[in-house]
Design a protein around this nucleic acid. Structure first.
Lengths: 253, 253
DNA sequence: ACAGTCTTTTCTGCCATGCGGAACGCGCCC
DNA sequence: GGGCGCGTTCCGCATGGCAGAAAAGACTGT
């Protein structure tokens, strides 16, 4: 993004921003788009209609609006496939050791997007969520990411929540920072609990989580999961660093 | 492109159209963008500044504006190299038989862009024009393309000319449609004459032409040139169709 | 399954503010 | 010096944003 024009066309800028957000963050509802732009819903509707008219957006059957064919692929998938390749061997080992499903997620605006999943062998297990998104402030991996955000970015996100929830998230993230891991106890789905930690130094941010049925969650096992997650995240980070230095990937390290 | 919104936002639509044109047709000058949109240069400048601000456009060192990183790859450039590969063997044979230079062109808004040239052996000959553009309504290949345009698209282009020239072009194109070929008798360069025909069914449109010094142009040879051009265009078209069906390219057919 | 209620989306009209045209200045080239 | 193209600024008015109504969809209770 370049310096703002001396004479901005605010309506044009709103439309282009909306298109860029669609591309970067994926499908959105009309009211969310309006809130994001700070305009009335009817105004957002007009902007989206203009985007659809010129193929910068398409409307899905569930009435959400998604990026249109004129827009290119967002940057994140390229970085994500790089990250995915680095992380998968480690996630597989983590799952083999702990017996629960593991996920790799990246930030995408106010949500986290699932880039990879390794499912455990149990018949009742958390399945593949690759490609899906969850609100960052509710998921374990999302909270692990948010805990590392700077004050301004975090304030912008919290400003989109109602004050009571914003305060809860704020407190929750302080706990995440203190403990070094984040917990999602059925906040995104009944019966599902997840533990997440950030991948240190991942470009653009990333986090991994172990997700399991609530009935298999145990406070006694929590420290062991946290330790395994933390060392796995460090191994992924080391692989990312080795690759950016041009070294061959070491299979286990 | 979808149905026009019931309440179009004209400034937003202009910006999005401009972005789409950049993507489809490549770099453009400010004044050409203004003419294309039918707005004042200062308005076009504002729109381009807004596009640059959100990475839908970038400005080149020569002050032209090009597509920005947010836009996806256009369909046309791929098609052009694809088209070029299909056409070159046929153009070479055409030049060997007729003894004059041949060109392959594609439409790019109100101009035609030279994608490939095969030069003849004569010392005085029409040289390589690959990468250059000519006004569509003045060049032979351009007119061959325009003759196949629908009424609305053609009216938009003619609307950019002065009324007398628009009327001449209109009449000229009627002749092109009747005869099946187009003639450029020194309209683009003194001493240069060209005969052009469309490549039927080429995605996005294409045309080929034989171009020669005016002194070598002959009304007696014209039918022979037209026949050779028409069969060459058909052969190129057949190759394009074969390739889109996944067949190996046949060297001569 | 159906009715009622609430939420979201879509449509429409009005008016004030943001957008486009005109004028001007600057830089480059012949 | 003149012509051309690009970029900036000012001002009037027409278009874009808001508000409200209508339509569509989701949710809840019986």
């Amino acid at each position: 993004m370049r310096n703002a024009p001396t004479y901005p066309l605010s309506s044009v800028d709103a439309a282009l921003l909306l298109a860029a957000l669609l591309r970067q963050e994926g499908p959105t509802r009309l009211t969310d788009a309006a809130a994001r732009l700070g305009v009335a819903p009817s105004t957002a509707h007009r902007l989206l209609a203009a985007l659809v008219h010129r193929d910068f957006a398409v409307q899905l059957p569930d009435r959400r609006y998604a990026p249109g064919p004129v827009l290119g692929e967002p940057v994140a998938p390229v970085a994500s496939s790089h990250l995915r390749d680095a992380a998968l061997p480690h996630l597989r080992r983590l799952v083999a050791e702990q017996g629960e499903s593991a996920h790799l997620v990246v930030p995408a605006g106010g949500v986290t997007r699932f880039v990879a999943t390794v499912e455990c062998d149990a018949v009742l297990r958390v399945g593949d969520r690759t490609g899906r998104t969850l609100p960052a402030h509710r998921s374990a991996a999302g909270k692990a990411l948010l805990a590392g955000w700077d004050t301004d970015a975090l304030a912008a996100l919290l400003g989109q929540l109602d004050p009571a929830e914003a305060e809860r998230v704020h407190r929750d993230l302080r706990g995440v920072r203190r403990r070094g891991f984040a917990l999602n106890d059925q906040a995104t789905e009944v019966g599902l609990t997840a533990v997440g930690v950030p991948v240190p130094g991942a470009p653009g941010g990333a986090a991994i989580s172990l997700a399991m049925p609530r009935v298999r969650f145990s406070r006694d096992r929590l420290p062991g999961w946290v330790t395994a997650l933390t060392s796995t995240a460090a191994a992924v980070a080391a692989d990312l660093t080795d690759e950016s230095r041009g070294r061959p990937r070491s299979p286990g390290s």
